Simulated assay, not measured.
Amino acid sequence: MKKLEKKEIIIIIVFIISIVFLNVNEFRYKTNQKISIEEEVKEVDSRDQEGDKENKDKQEEKEKNEPKKIKVDICGAVKNPGVIILKEGDRVIDAINKAGGLTDRADILKINRSKYVYDSEKIIIPEIGQEIDVEGIDDSDTIGIDKKININTASKEELESLDGIGESISERILKYRQKNNGFKSIEEIMNISGIGQSKFEQIKDSIKVK
């Protein structure tokens, strides 16, 4: 076998090194490409997750801000009497419209159409000449006439008409609402000295803040 010359050996070594170098570079390129693709996939997944979380947060915020649904029973001189679904903050006029509107026999002089409605309330729309026995009905807020005392506007005498509220407590209520720009909820009245949970339970169905 012919002995390789020094020059030939060098050429072979250079060739082998070139092959190895090319293979290493190709491996590095493929590895970097794979890493780049994986990073892009992770970035897309991360954006998708952030988008899903943002959409979820928006949906939760929307649901949180949406008015609570309530049910009221409206009967009497409306076209479609029955239990209807409204939203907190709706008024008697909204209940009437939801029930198809008033009939020709409705006595509008006995209806306060601007009154707020409350969950589980019974609204009776009387016909002309009809007398309603309010005492025989459980809910005192009937016929659209609001009998609750607004603790943000009530006089001292009106406050004292509430069960268990005397002169001293009524004066505290007046001072509190003046100092705090009114009550934000009926539960806030428990901040008044002398009105605890038990007394609040006595008057909560007889008061309102708007």
Rank of each mutant, 00 (worst) to 15 (best):
M1F: 08
I11L: 07
F21S: 08
N23G: 14
F27Q: 11
R28G: 15
K30R: 13
T31P: 01
E38H: 02
E39L: 05
D48F: 10
E50A: 15
E50G: 04
E54K: 04
E63F: 09
P67I: 05
K71Y: 08
V72Y: 01
I74D: 02
C75I: 04
G76K: 00
A77Y: 01
V78H: 03
P81R: 10
G82E: 10
I85E: 15
E88C: 04
I96M: 02
N97Q: 15
K98V: 05
T103Q: 09
A106T: 06
N112D: 14
N112Y: 12
K115Y: 06
S120N: 14
I124D: 00
P126V: 01
E127K: 07
D133M: 13
I137Y: 07
D138G: 12
D139W: 09
D141Y: 01
K147H: 11
I149Y: 00
I151T: 15
L162I: 13
D163S: 08
G164P: 10
E167N: 14
E167I: 10
E171W: 09
R177G: 02
R177N: 08
F183P: 13
I186M: 11
E187Q: 12
I189C: 15
M190Q: 15
F200P: 03
I203F: 06
K204N: 08
K208A: 01
